[in-house]
Design a protein around this nucleic acid. Sequence first.
DNA 1: AACCCAAGCAACCGCTCTCTC
DNA 2: GGAGAGAGCGGTTGCTTGGGT
Length: 210
Amino acid sequence: MKGLENEHYRKGLWTEEEDKILSDYIRVHGRGHWNRISKVTALKRCGKSCRLRWLNYLNPDIKLGHFSEEEDDLIIRLHNLLGNRWSLIARRVPGRTDNQVKNHWNTHLCKKLGIKKPRGKVVCSMRKISSPTAETKTVSTDNFNFKPLQSSRITMSVDCPINTSETSNHGVETHQFIDDQHCIQSFLSAGNSFKMNSPGFLEFLDGFFY
DNA sequence: AACCCAAGCAACCGCTCTCTC
DNA sequence: GGAGAGAGCGGTTGCTTGGGT
Ligand SMILES: [Mg+2]
């Protein structure tokens, strides 16, 4: 019998009244500690739902409305380079959230590009710091840290769960793709250790996408 | 008017990552 | 230094809407 009455959270679309309660709360207390909100207001929403509503709608920095051609081009370029890393992409698209970018990709850009099957992750394959003698391997999450070795071969590839002939790897289809991949290659060749979300790599991205 | 179907997309779920104490 | 809490991520779902017949 641990706080059963607090587990009755509402789900689904947010009402104007709910938005107002959340906005008022954030105006006073700031963002964060989302789980507290349902305990001190009349809002019957779990912390996760509150956080998401703020991040994707109530935050005044968010740009609403249709995506421009320039935004489309930027997203396509970034997606070529980064794969389905929506958060990473959205950070480089002013006023757009990861959810917006993901939805826009899935509903509009996919068709625009004539993509039938979703593309796998762009992965980086090389030797790992902790085991320099181990064979080249890919990784399944972004939480890794590669350091290029003198003799190591650095490759970018497209991870594709279903092996069809045209999507093996090095899915190079356009000039832009080659250029963007070269951007990571040069980052690695400069001797930088590589971690997908590291400050160093994010700063490096700034130089390519402005 | 009534129905069907699919596009669009807000929000959920399960999971990972990070931060704090 | 590790456990628990908070924050973040991305695939997916299911409700709403719109267009076609
Ligand atoms: Mg953004």
